[in-house]
Nucleic acid binder design. Sequence first.
DNA 1: TTAATATCTATAGTTACTATAGAGTCAAGA
DNA 2: TCTTGACTCTATAGTAACTATAGATATTAA
Lengths: 132, 132
Amino acid sequence: MKIGELARLTGCSVQTIRYYEKANVLESKKRSEGNFRLYDSSAVEQLMFIKHCRSLDLALAEVRQLIDLNQSPGTHCDDVNTMIDNHIEQVEQRMKELKGLRQQLKSLRNSCSTNRTVEECGILQNLSAKQL
Amino acid sequence: MKIGELARLTGCSVQTIRYYEKANVLESKKRSEGNFRLYDSSAVEQLMFIKHCRSLDLALAEVRQLIDLNQSPGTHCDDVNTMIDNHIEQVEQRMKELKGLRQQLKSLRNSCSTNRTVEECGILQNLSAKQL
DNA sequence: TTAATATCTATAGTTACTATAGAGTCAAGA
DNA sequence: TCTTGACTCTATAGTAACTATAGATATTAA
């Protein structure tokens, strides 16, 4: 199949597929006479794997690592576990940050009501306050 | 003062200050004979304002909007309120996403224990599963 | 044959910086 | 006076994961 069909089957855009090739996570093994990329069904699987990883916010560099690991089935998979553990930690860290952020934003928002002028705006006043 | 002192006083890097100038959120009004940027104390305030906004994850484009609004003190400040409200929503949206992510990652992590080979690795198996 | 559609490569844009390279400025010490 | 070092200047490239062009070629259908 050509790139357009692969895109349709997986829900990725054509440009994204070409980008993944450049990023070394998905190669097309053949080209047609007219230099069009040709894929088989294993490309669909591979691309779904990438999509799944991306939906978990794994970076393409991490996806590449996983693919490399997968290519040597005998070695043991501690690296995979570690990667996921690190990722969970990152996610939890970011959640903490966002929680704090939301708190700050909410109290900032409470410092201004409607129908004020910019001059009176509690939000702008707060943002401008010298002590942080 | 020159850019280095402004950087020291605010905790921003010199490059960041120059970047902010390019991004139209902080201008230097004067230059020395030797073409060095010169700032006064109001630049410190302005830069702290920007830092404060950035610490709330407001984009520089939003900071620019706030600065523009601040320049017309008579108009009313609904736009400020709306911006903050939208921002709170975005933060909450992202928090929801991360919560789901964490859940998925944790159950993924539970699918593999230590001392397995890549071939047996439950994580890789799960990521490769066709049905998503 | 022609027109529409799909594909190709290469390049630029997105965000908020960071990190160079190469040149110029300035103050203090020898 | 010369020089050294610290500082500054502009311009450019890199970061992540795409998206969006431009301009050329390939293929398909009418």
